[in-house]
Design a protein around this nucleic acid. Structure first.
Lengths: 147, 147
DNA sequence: CGGGATCCGTTACGATACTG
DNA sequence: CAGTATCGTAACGGATCCCG
C-alpha cells in the first residue's frame, strides 16, 4: 500500500536564527527575572513576540492552521521576507510549528504549539483591549495628515 | 503670596508625531475592528505599545512616576533618542503624561494616565507570562553562540 | 546639570526577482 | 506556492551641541 498523504516535514534544518538588534554589551548580567536587563533572555523572546508582525501572526494563528500565503494575505502590509523571518523566530522559540508537505505545488502550514497558544492568548488580550478602547485613545493626537 | 511650587507644564506644543513606518497604501479602508487591516488605527497604537521600548516604558511606569534619567537608567540599552521618541508617541496616544517643572536643573516626570495604566496592565500580563515560562521556551532552539 | 534636537554611521526593513 | 537573495530606503543608535 502506498502512502496517500506525503510525509510532512516539521521544521527545517534548524538554521541558527538571531534577533536583529541587541548589539551585545559588556556587562553580561543575566537577571533572569528582570525584563529590564539588556541581556535577559526574556527580552529576546519579548522582541520576537511583540515585533511588528509577530503580534499579528500569533493572533492570526489563534483560529487554527494557516498556510504561508493565507497569512500573507490576511496580514496587511507584511512582506514575504518579514513574514518568513518572523515565522522562523517564532518557530525557534517554540511558539509555532512549521509543517512542510513535500508536494507540488509546495504546501507549508503553520500552527501554534500549546506554548504558542498561551502567548497568543496574552497577546490577544492586549490587541482586544486596544480595539475596544480605540475611541478613548489619542485624545489630543495631532491626527497626522501633514508632514 | 508667591508660588512655592513652580507651575508644571504638561505636554509640549503638540508637535506632530508620526510613526516611523506605515508608508501609506492606496486602499484606505479603515476597518476599525480589524487589526489586520494595514490602515487600521489600532495598528498604529499597537505599533507604539509593542515597540521595542514602548513595552518596557509602560511596564516601568506601572510603579509610579519616573524621571527621564530614571527610565533611562532602568531600561537597559535604550538610547536617549529612542526613549524620548517613544515617550512622545505614548504621550500623543494619551497613555503617558509628561510634566515638566520649570526649575533648574530641569525636572521632567513621566507617569501613566488612567488609560495608560490599563494598557500597561495588559502588557504586563504578557511580560509576566514570558518571564514565568522562560524555562519552557526555546525547546530545540540552536542556542545561537557563534555566527 | 538634565533633556532633547541634530548629524551621521549602522542596520533592519520593504519591493522585486529568482529558485525549488 | 513557498521561500531566499539582492538592493535601495529609512529607521535606529551614538555622540554632540544647545537650551532651560
Amino acid at each position: 500500500m502506498k502512502k496517500t498523504a506525503p510525509a510532512p516535514v516539521n521544521s527545517r534544518n534548524s538554521t541558527a536564527l538571531r534577533t536583529p538588534a541587541e548589539p551585545a554589551t559588556p556587562t553580561a548580567l543575566l537577571l533572569r527575572g528582570n525584563l529590564f536587563a539588556e541581556k535577559c533572555p526574556s527580552r529576546q523572546i519579548l522582541t520576537h513576540v511583540t515585533s511588528r508582525w509577530g503580534v499579528l501572526i500569533l493572533v492570526a494563528l489563534l483560529d487554527g492552521t494557516h498556510r504561508f500565503s493565507e497569512l500573507r494575505r490576511r496580514i496587511g502590509g507584511v512582506s514575504e521576507r518579514m513574514l518568513s523571518q518572523t515565522l522562523q523566530w517564532l518557530e525557534a522559540d517554540g511558539f509555532v510549528t512549521r509543517t512542510a508537505y513535500p508536494v507540488v505545488p509546495p504546501r507549508v502550514e503553520y500552527s501554534l504549539t500549546p506554548l504558542g497558544r498561551e502567548v497568543s492568548e496574552q497577546v490577544r488580550q492586549l490587541t482586544d483591549w486596544i480595539e475596544e478602547n480605540l475611541g478613548r485613545i489619542g485624545a489630543g493626537q495631532p491626527a497626522d495628515g501633514a508632514e
